[in-house]
Amino acid sequence: MTRRIWLWAGAHAVDDLYQGLVPATLPYFVLDHRYSYVAASGLTLAAALGSSVPQPFIGMLADRYRLGWLAAAGVALAGLGLGLSGLAGGYPAVWSLILLSGLGVAMFHPAAGKAAREVAGDSTTAMSVFAAGGSVGFFLAPVLATPALVAWGVPATALFIPPAVLIAFVLLRGHRRHLAATAGKALRRGADQWRPFFALTGIEVVRSAAFFGVNTFIELYWIRHLHASRGLAGAALAVFLVGGVLGTLAGGRIADRIGAVRTVQLGALAAVPMLIALRLSGGTIAPLLFAALVGVALNIPFAVLVKLGQDYLPGRPGTAAGVTLGLGVSIGGLFAPLLGLAAQHYGPQGVFAILCAAPLAAWALGLLLTEPRAILTAAALPATTD
Rank of each mutant, 00 (worst) to 15 (best):
A268N: 08
L288P: 05
S52R: 09
L82N: 08
G89Y: 09
P372T: 03
P287K: 09
P163W: 02
P27D: 03
R316T: 07
A233Q: 04
A255N: 06
A183V: 03
R4P: 00
Q349K: 11
E204S: 15
G234Q: 06
A181E: 12
T201G: 08
T201R: 04
T385V: 15
G251I: 13
A343N: 07
F139I: 07
L289A: 15
A126L: 12
T384Y: 11
A362K: 02
A199L: 00
V150N: 11
L338Q: 08
M60S: 08
R4S: 05
D16C: 03
G86C: 08
H109G: 05
P348I: 05
P27W: 01
D32I: 07
L70M: 12
L80I: 14
R373I: 02
A286H: 11
G347A: 05
A286F: 13
V14I: 06
S96P: 05
L339H: 03
L232P: 02
L97I: 00
L369A: 13
I331H: 06
H345E: 13
F169C: 12
V296G: 08
S101E: 00
R188A: 15
P110W: 12
G133R: 14
R373G: 12
G244M: 14
G231K: 07
T248V: 07
T384M: 11
R257Y: 10
L26D: 03
K307L: 14
L187K: 11
A141R: 13
F352D: 04
T384W: 10
H33G: 07
R117L: 14
A115S: 05
A148K: 01
A378P: 00
D311T: 03
S101M: 00
